[in-house]
Simulated assay, not measured.
Amino acid sequence: MTEDDEDLRLAVAVSLRGNGFAVDVARDLAGADETLAVNSYDCAVFDRMVPGGDALGYVAARRRTGFDLPVLFLTALGGLGQRVEGLAVGDDYLVKPFEIDELVARVRGLCRRGPIGSPAVLRHGDVELDQGRREVRRGGVLLTVTHKQFLVLELLLANAGRVVPRDDLIRHAWDEHLDPSSNVLDVLVGQLRRKLHEPPVVHTVRGVGYRVG
């Protein structure tokens, strides 16, 4: 967990530990970088504005290098645009002030998250998604995708040829915390399409959801 407010950092850490989580804390991005380099985690919690910069940019940069750890942003930046921006990089977004019980529930949900079924390689045409290695390739070329992009593509490939409803994709990638009327899913699918290049792999079924094939 990265949070520069010492009182809040301590309160959150104590609450999470009291609910059975092992927690490491950092007050800035440099500390987070060092901690992530030497330890393995099920999820990470970042305050957005900490010493060293905006954690959103930090996580976005790490995503481009294959960092796929589920991330919850904890922040006072609660505008719609800021939430959409945060959910395009992280996996959950909780605005201050918040209830500790809700934070614990969201962290628990992120830590439980994992690939569907047993690790396998899902294929459609020249697109391959390796659930065990958490890698996506097209034409044998490794693509850099975010954790949520991986989850959305995973569910689509697991149901290739069938339409996957928007609500199912949202539940798979964001649990229940994303408003189904939000355009975050559409933004993410657009980003994923650009990364997959031509010809198109993910198709829109208006008013219903998306499909592969």
Rank of each mutant, 00 (worst) to 15 (best):
M1G: 00
E6D: 15
R9I: 12
V14K: 10
N19T: 00
F21Y: 14
F21M: 03
V25I: 03
R27Y: 03
A30C: 05
A30T: 12
G31D: 08
D33P: 05
Y41M: 06
A44I: 11
A44R: 13
V45I: 15
R48M: 14
G57W: 02
V59Y: 04
A60V: 06
A60M: 07
R62G: 12
R62A: 10
R63T: 05
P70S: 09
G79D: 08
V89Y: 13
D92C: 01
D92Y: 02
P97F: 08
F98M: 00
F98Q: 08
I100C: 06
D101K: 12
R106L: 03
P119M: 05
V121S: 11
L122Y: 06
V127T: 15
G132M: 11
R133H: 08
R138E: 02
G140R: 10
L142C: 13
L142F: 09
H147E: 10
K148V: 15
K148Y: 11
L151W: 07
L153N: 10
E154L: 07
L155R: 08
L156Y: 09
G161R: 01
R162H: 13
P165Q: 00
P180A: 08
N183D: 11
V184K: 10
V184F: 01
L185T: 00
L188A: 09
H197Q: 06
P199R: 08
P200R: 00
V202M: 07
V205I: 07
Y210F: 12
